[in-house]
Design a protein around this nucleic acid. Structure first.
Lengths: 254, 254
DNA sequence: CCCCATCTTCCACTCAGTGGAAAGCCTTCG
DNA sequence: CGAAGGCTTTCCACTGAGTGGAAGATGGGG
């Protein structure tokens, strides 16, 4: 029966195929991919064959399939994510060298925080954040900063939605969250002890491009560590990153 | 007329659309994308609309189109590129801090070197390498290492192809290149003064995963700088990165 | 040797996708 | 202020890219 019984498009199917891969699932057989993507086996094989031909997926000698390097290249080369990371990375390195803690860069993706970069430090407290990983907006310091400066319609949707606890101190009361977000906008930063894990405090500041908040820069401190030095370092790093974004702007203005 | 007059697939068209973006072209109108991808305007608009719906592209309020953050996420989350970068990044930072020079990580992509990471240093000499950028294999220190350890069939194709000069000292004689590659395999590193730019020397070593060369780790030094300290630092970084890859392996063994 | 999972090939069938045409919108320029 | 040009949106008759079940091949493990 052609085309698909469900009426879905080829693009939707390709996204579902690529979406089956994750940090914890970097290699699969074509049959596994098909099952996870909800596709008949012969259809899955055909689509995967073509993605391999285009370099978006790669097959090894045992027929196992991985995401292709070409896909990585296409997705990064002209991306906002790369530009943000390039601008922020040297300054994140400075923060991390000075504070000896995890340092992170996140952006808003739909209704979650997506982490573009995470410089881990062996001295630092345990932290679940992953590069290309997501966390709920209300349950991470980065997410709180992004939510505070987000489009009001999105903010209201998040405030109305379920606010599930992730850590022992995750804010789950909408009224409390609303006040916290207002305070973040006023003060320009957040310090969130225990929002994700009991032993740590996330500290985050906004990173702006032409006045708009485009990312959040954060560190993860031990729970009782003083916040002020981290805040100073983060604000400095954000300011320098913003300057680099401005310097870079003519290049991207096509 | 349906389907396409050229008989090409939807996947091929989507790749052509995304391929129109690059470091020097991060924002375009849908009409520009269509022209560059060789698609009729209405077809281009329709494909772009759907890619936007899936988050692979994003449209701003002026109808300009960028690569989507969702595409970045899908391409990175389960990718070999991310895994290699995560393993290597802390050690690249150490190399860069010690040597105060550009530090790079590259993989083989078809018949070129693709740069996964590049830690730039303000003190360092000028360098054209870009993250998600490519260089010919024979014309960069990273590329030479990757080529030395590549599949023999690929190596022969490169040796037979035109070997264009990129810098003043790029090797363009196949016999000379063949000997250089053999020496790299013997010695385990390359020092390539002027292969890209007159003022600099690239030094690169292989990075292995389960015995196979999966990447090249390199630094770019001033032309007359001593190579030995850089080589020691790179070898150490490669060894530590390889250890981190081994530690990480159970996670990715699904 | 059997079982099971994966992969490959086939093919009748059909609707996702096509692209030219027309019209609307917006910006720039004279 | 109107014209020009480029972009975007909508329409729709048309059709081949894409479908998925069936059958068979392959290979690993018990």
């Amino acid at each position: 029966m052609a085309n698909s019984a469900s009426g879905e498009s080829m693009i939707a199917r390709v996204v579902r195929v690529i979406d089956t891969f994750g940090v914890d699932r970097t290699v699969q057989t074509a049959s596994e991919i098909g099952r996870r993507a909800g596709l008949p086996s012969s259809t899955a094989h055909r689509i995967i064959d073509e993605l391999v031909d285009e370099g978006l997926l790669e097959r090894d000698l045992e027929h196992r399939v991985r995401l292709g390097t070409r896909l990585w290249e296409l997705a990064l080369r002209g991306s906002t994510a790369l530009r943000l990371r390039q601008a922020a990375l040297p300054h994140m390195e400075s923060v991390q060298a000075e504070l000896r803690e995890h340092t992170q860069l996140a952006v808003l993706e739909r209704d979650e925080a997506l982490f573009l970069e995470r410089l881990s430090h062996p001295d630092a407290v345990s932290n679940i954040t992953r590069v290309a990983g997501r966390l709920p907006l209300h349950a991470s310091s980065s997410g709180l900063v992004l939510l505070a400066h987000a489009d009001p319609a999105l903010r209201e949707r998040v405030l109305e939605g379920p606010l599930r606890a992730v850590g022992p101190n995750t804010i789950t009361d909408p009224a409390v969250l609303r006040r916290a977000l207002a305070e973040i906008r006023r003060s320009g930063f957040v310090s969130a002890p225990g929002s994700i894990e009991a032993v740590s405090t996330g500290v985050a500041v906004p990173l702006r491009d032409r006045g708009e908040v485009v990312a959040a820069l954060s560190v993860v401190l031990p729970r009782e560590a003083p916040v002020e030095p981290a805040l100073v370092a983060l604000r400095d790093a954000a300011a320098r990153s913003e300057a680099d974004l401005r310097d870079d702007a003519p290049l991207t203005r096509q």
